[in-house]
């Protein structure tokens, strides 16, 4: 039987999905054990037991100086920055994307501009943001927004242009104004596309957030990772990286569920 026609059974599917995770874990455990056997004080590849202990300490123990659990404070700080940046970008992307896609005059004026702006490397703009907006939260939110807004605008413009012309003509024969078509024909059909575009841009959004936190901050997940790097605290770094990965995965999964729940018609269309 050809390889392209072979499918795993129910057990096989779970086993195959777990396989890469197990392999990576085994390789890490082997490497860690080898290094620790040579030098029990090694900090580069801590054992799973050390990692578990560190994770428990980070999640439960209060900071001696501030009396707060830094882990949760960092998480809250990072997530609120991320939400603000992505939220602003989503709003701008939605409004401009639909406007550019639907209105030829705006398209003529802004499409080329957005294409050029989207080529600006956002991280190169970061110093400008720090200089103009200060090193506080505003600059970080601005970096995330600047980083992903052009992508969102371009993606949603394309999605709006993909709407069948028949629907736009039909709406006109039913007496719809431009605003009516934007709000009642284009917008509802673009919203599920907005969610999938946000899911795609969450990776870059985290990148910009952590980069900004690494450069100038006093809290946040990215700040902590870069702070403890000085002490070679791999156990802390790995715990934070795992936590960031889990958060990103949960947000992605939650958005997918939200989209299916809010827009059942978008699924059926296939």
């Amino acid at each position: 039987m050809r390889l392209i026609n072979r499918y795993p059974g129910p057990v096989g599917r779970v086993a195959l999905a777990a396989l890469p995770f197990v392999l990576v874990g085994l390789v890490y455990a082997q490497a860690s054990a080898a290094r620790l056997a040579e030098n029990p004080q090694d900090r580069i590849l801590p054992s799973f037991a050390t990692l578990g202990g560190t994770a428990w300490r980070l999640l439960t123990e209060e900071d001696r100086r501030s009396g707060e659990i830094l882990f949760w404070g960092d998480t809250l700080s990072s997530l609120s920055l991320l939400a603000a940046g992505v939220g602003i970008a989503a709003l701008l992307g939605l409004v401009l994307g639909v406007a550019i896609g639907l209105i030829p005059l705006i398209r003529s004026s802004l499409q080329g501009f957005v294409a050029v702006v989207s080529m600006i490397p956002p991280l190169a703009v970061l110093p400008i943001l720090f200089i103009t907006l200060g090193v506080g939260d505003t600059a970080k939110i601005a970096l995330i927004a600047i980083g992903i807004t052009p992508f969102l605008i371009r993606d949603l413009t394309a999605r709006t242009l993909e709407l069948p012309q028949e629907q736009v003509v039909k709406a006109q024969t039913l007496g719809a104004s431009t605003l009516g078509i934007a709000l009642s024909v284009a917008l509802p059909q673009i919203l599920p596309r907005l969610i999938s575009a946000i899911r795609l841009s969450l990776g870059p959004a985290w990148l910009f957030l952590i980069a900004a936190e690494a450069v100038a901050s006093d809290s946040g997940l990215g700040y902590r990772v870069f702070l403890v790097r000085r002490f070679l605290a791999m156990d802390v770094i790995l715990t934070y990286v795992a936590w960031i990965t889990l958060l990103a995965f949960l947000i992605d999964w939650g958005l997918a569920r939200l989209s299916r729940w809010l827009f059942p018609w978008a699924e059926a269309r296939g």
Binding site: P164, E166, Q167, K170, Q172, T173, G175, Q189, W265, R269
Partner: peptide, 16 residues
């Protein structure tokens, strides 16, 4: 405008 209605072969109704 509203004086002339149209039915296409496809995509005539709003999927959402």
């Amino acid at each position: 405008d509203r004086t002339r209605g149209i039915v296409f072969q496809r995509y005539s109704v709003f999927p959402h």
